[in-house]
Nucleic acid binder design. Structure first.
Lengths: 270, 270
DNA sequence: GTGACCCCTCCCGCGGCGAGAGGGTCAAGT
DNA sequence: ACTTGACCCTCTCGCCGCGGGAGGGGTCAC
């Protein structure tokens, strides 16, 4: 009497490798229908083919094993579908990043980029309405969107005295986490919810304008950085962005204008 | 006199992390403009910002460091663009696989799949025109396309006596490498180029027809496998596919018909 | 001179898989 | 009953690119 399919047969049926099946057993993802107590041989049944395939597909979508496990453990198909769509959404975001990188790369490899106009500007201290937060790990964009929405809600157009902006710690870019502030100059800053009045200190900024969508904004950052260094300056402190024309103003992303301001100070060339 | 930018300053300018810059140095990807002989301090120059950014973008596209290195080492921009497009193409293929996995997953999670019609068929030995090869590692599809094209070229329509097919070792699916044969029954098989007459042995096949594009063909494979096991049979040997209606016949992929034949034998239930 | 930062090197962990070593088991043929 | 060869077992290591931490030294402004 055969106790079921051997691991090799099951591997052939599911198009998974033997090693992989063993790992899935070990991880508790796909328990063999029977395991011989004495030899340790794994035996599978035909009913295990569909779950094995589900795992296979999820892995092709780079769903981590732990998450696959929790998906399989979820009985409710509704809930299960949600978990899957959540992951698919993450894939979409990653795809967006990939697209950005391609655009950015093309820009970088373009033979003759137009000259970048950089202006040195001393900005006096000013008090603005702002939302500040310690943002971690890849939730930067959602946080930004929520903060900006809150700001917009609290201060309707007649209150606003200039375009919105943001102040971003450098660690945000290098480490993916750090302090960020989203702000807008308004007639009378006051505290509502997360929004509160904040005094931005006086700074000397090297300012350049990035044109178009933000896919390749890092290219402009880099060119601004190079300019700063070549002019014997050093950068210091969080960077400022001002959204002169942004997605809130026009759908035509090629008309967006983003002002980048990097705090600088003169280096003593001794 | 400052010898250049410190690694921390350079990190802020390029939005790369300090650790990552050190790794790139170690890997020979981005040599600092100067390294202090005594302290080991790395110093970078403004001219290194663009290459650093290129590396950054390529890494976002998951180009392995080794390949990034070879891209940077390539002087000829023409050649360089080729390397990059080659990688972008790989990304496209991966995207296709992802799409397939999504389709396949949906299919698997569908509550009530239609009954699968399976037929047991004894196929006598026959001699066909075939291209055979040891195919390795993810070049399966290109190899298939080339082999089929060669076959089509050698045997024009009047010579053909049936739809084309393939015979695929199971390891192809589990390990991604193995022996595959692409064949077509023709009036008079003869050797031309890689094409040669091959006698396919007689086999007992469990046969099912997969309808539609091949994205979710693994689902049909799994269901056929389950059927085979439930009918007290065991699978053995390479699987056969017959392309009743394929991309060569119609662009409407939902009308494709692929016959899957799995060699089986009766299990002694003693 | 002293403290606050910055920088250095070296080592480990992560995730999912392949690969190999070293050894036991199964089933068919002698 | 015994051999043989295919199959199965466990365990450990390597891959890739990055982060994190330990432990130690350098730089610079007060």
């Amino acid at each position: 009497m055969r106790p079921g399919l051997t691991i090799g047969e099951f591997a052939a049926l599911t198009h998974l490798s033997v090693r992989t099946l063993r790992r899935y057993h070990e991880a508790g993802l796909l328990e063999p229908a029977a395991v011989d107590r004495f030899t340790g041989y794994r035996y599978y049944s035909a009913e295990q083919i569909p779950p094995a395939q589900v795992i296979h597909r999820l892995r092709e979508l780079d769903v981590p094993l732990a998450e696959v496990k929790s998906i399989l453990a979820t009985q409710d198909p509704q809930r299960r579908a949600e978990l899957i769509t959540a992951h698919l959404q993450r894939l979409e975001e990653q795809l967006d990043r990939t697209r950005s990188a391609v655009v950015s790369l093309r820009q970088l490899l373009r033979p003759d980029p137009a000259e970048l106009d950089v202006e040195l500007r001393s900005v006096p201290a000013r008090t603005v309405a702002a939302v500040t937060g310690q943002v971690a790990q890849a939730v930067v964009l959602p946080w930004y969107a929520a903060a900006m929405a809150e700001l917009d809600a609290v201060f309707p157009p007649p209150e606003r005295t200039g375009p919105p902006g943001g102040r971003y710690a450098n660690e945000l870019f290098t480490d993916g986490a750090g302090t960020m502030t989203v702000f807008r100059p308004v007639r009378e800053p006051h505290a509502v919810g997360r929004v509160e009045p904040v005094e931005l200190p006086a700074v000397d900024l090297a300012v350049a304008v990035h044109r178009g969508p933000h896919d390749d904004i890092d290219v402009t950052y880099g060119r601004l950085g190079a300019w700063v260094v070549e002019h014997a300056l050093a950068v210091d402190g969080p960077v400022y962005e001002t959204y002169l024309v942004g997605p809130r103003d026009t759908d035509a992303s090629e008309r967006w204008r983003t002002e980048i301001g990097w705090p600088v100070f003169r280096v003593n060339p001794d």
